[in-house]
Design a protein around this nucleic acid. Structure first.
Lengths: 340, 340
DNA sequence: TTTGACATTGAAAGCGCTTTCATGAATCGC
DNA sequence: GCGATTCATGAAAGCGCTTTCAATGTCAAA
């Protein structure tokens, strides 16, 4: 395994010029640069990352801290998110460092060791203490989602509120007046935003939101199944369902079918679709109408954002909220009572 | 951000002693050790990882290389696997480095830079070239699963063959003679092993395996749905189904229900269960009978294995094949034709 | 011919840690 | 009470790279 010294000796040059050549400094002669590059390639030279890091002070990696009892890692969405992240990082020769650790001070510990240049925060809580801590430490970070803190921070988020407002409106236009919402966990911001959009649409249409139609929980298949059971056991059950994820929608349809209800004739469904690669909504028995926002995109976008941020971009320029498509397929139709 | 020199100056000691104290050398006086530890804690000192790596030559991290167009990251199992891995690593203050890269030489590039001390290989192909490369490079690595190479390498695997043999036997004992197998991708070793176990059981019971009853594909929900459709469109459809994953089983049950078939009266189902945290088989409408092997355990075990391996354990001691439980729940019963 | 600007390169000082080797001081056996 | 150990510490070399600063040589301008 050749090192810089070997390479320099081999070329009869100083380490300095070789290093400069490899890092494409303009001050080094074009022909020597060529020579160096060739020799490096020939000797299969790879600069030692630790040495370079030590010299430059930059790690070339970004961290994701996974609390031990994390529901992040219980989340199939995380895989697709990671996928987007790593492909985008690969192009810049950056890595992502996954570390399991307990408590908020893990971030501090981690950043201070210089292992990473910054962090990516997933599933932020409403008043997430990590934001304050990292801001104070002046460590670059990008949040996937948003929080309720009066701090300026970089984030990437989708328009959850308008997405669910639009979806609700569509159902209302189809004549549905009792719409169930199988939402995500109540302490998640995205769930709160979706609830806002849903409520907003109802209120705008002079309907009084019925809290018994709204459920909150971790977005598993079973939750979809159970919550649907609960909703339809009510005296006046909904005629339409809004689901927070495709897995939830899957559970919901399973329950509906068990109970002899058909989609969309008896019940319309709109689900939020993160475009998980192992669960495609267009291939559902009844192709699902969805609010569509590929979570993979979040990964690739956040990669770009944190790179910009590390290069000194203003935080205000690293705040992105992207729109969500509403795709109508076969799981939505006119409400039963609105049909002749 | 204090460094070693600051700390040493502050204590009136040399960097050497402080370093030794922090690394718990026995040669340093107990009271000074105390003093150092306290001061370090007080000054919130964290040794710089790059410097330490450079000095020791060890990275304190293991790598997972994700090919760009990877189906690893399309796999919900991967999340649970990672979860196990990181929690086990956290206890040893090790990290995992995720890197996106194309081609096999990515491993070489990656190891040579000293970013990681070794690798974890997922979804090995039958004659996986990575094994040979890494063996030659003498870089520690543990394979999740097994390959068809005549090299000695460290691995962790579950007894796929006996698991599916047992499951098939159970179904045979219940009187089923036509058993569908919704297997994983045909180029995956685990799928091949499962097929072996399945075939073995049939042959042992004097049945001729019918290739039209065996399907291979990526283990998605849709695959379960479609393949089940195909199987039951046959002139003599199966009375039992063996599924390679819970997502596949989910798709299968969806299809069966659509086609008006009930589980287990019309069709018995046994699925392999990796115990994904977002999809629990015990909560299926009809609780699933399963061959059970938590993939999370694979993560925690592999973490231990690679640590041992790096410490110089013999490869022969780092080859683990764990048994799989067969759990009978409500999705299996006597074959229809075997009932009076 | 002298001078200054420019283009290339090298020497060497770090980056922050570990670890070998040397050095005193204290302790022991006899 | 003296050499031989043991204990505890410090000085300093090095890990492999980057980067500042100085030192060449070259060439056009004066």
């Amino acid at each position: 395994m050749a090192n810089l010294k070997d390479l320099a000796d081999h070329l009869g040059l100083s380490q300095a010029t070789v290093s400069r050549a490899l890092n494409d400094y303009s001050t080094v002669n074009a022909t020597t640069k060529q020579r160096v590059l060739q020799a490096a390639n020939h000797l299969n030279y790879r600069p030692n990352t630790s040495a370079r890091r030590l010299a430059t002070g930059r790690a070339g990696a970004y961290g994701i801290v996974l609390p031990k009892a994390d529901n992040l890692l219980m989340d199939p969405h995380f895989v697709d998110f990671l996928s987007g992240l790593t492909t985008a990082f690969a192009a810049h020769d950056l890595d992502i460092v996954l570390t399991g650790a307990e408590g908020i001070q893990a971030y501090q510990r981690f950043a201070n060791t210089g292992k990473v240049d910054g962090f990516i925060l997933s599933s932020p809580k409403s008043d997430d203490p990590r934001i304050r801590l990292l801001s104070e430490m002046e460590v670059p970070f990008v949040v996937h989602g948003r929080c309720d803190v009066d701090l300026d921070y970089a984030f990437y988020d989708i328009r959850n509120r308008s997405a669910f407002r639009d979806a609700t409106n569509l159902l209302l236009n189809l004549g549905h007046t009792r719409i169930g919402l199988l939402n995500g966990p109540s302490d998640a911001i995205f769930a709160r935003d979706r609830l806002k959009g849903y409520t907003e649409a109802l209120v705008t249409n002079d309907l009084i939101p019925d809290p018994t139609l709204v459920m909150h929980d971790m977005m598993t298949e079973e939750y979809g199944y159970r919550a649907t059971g609960t909703l339809f056991a009510q005296p006046s059950p909904p005629t339409a369902l809004l689901c927070a994820s495709t897995l939830v929608a899957l559970g919901a349809t399973r329950r509906l079918r068990r109970d002899g209800l058909t989609v969309p004739e008896d019940v319309s469904i709109i689900s939020h679709d993160d475009c998980l690669s192992s669960l495609k909504t267009e291939n559902f028995s009844v192709p699902l109408s969805v609010t569509r926002a590929p979570i993979r995109d979040a990964g690739t976008e956040i990669a770009k954002l944190i790179i910009d941020l590390s290069r000194g971009a203003a935080i205000a320029d690293i705040q992105k909220t992207v729109p969500v498509d509403l795709i109508v397929r076969a799981s939505t139709c006119t409400a039963p009572q609105a049909r002749s």
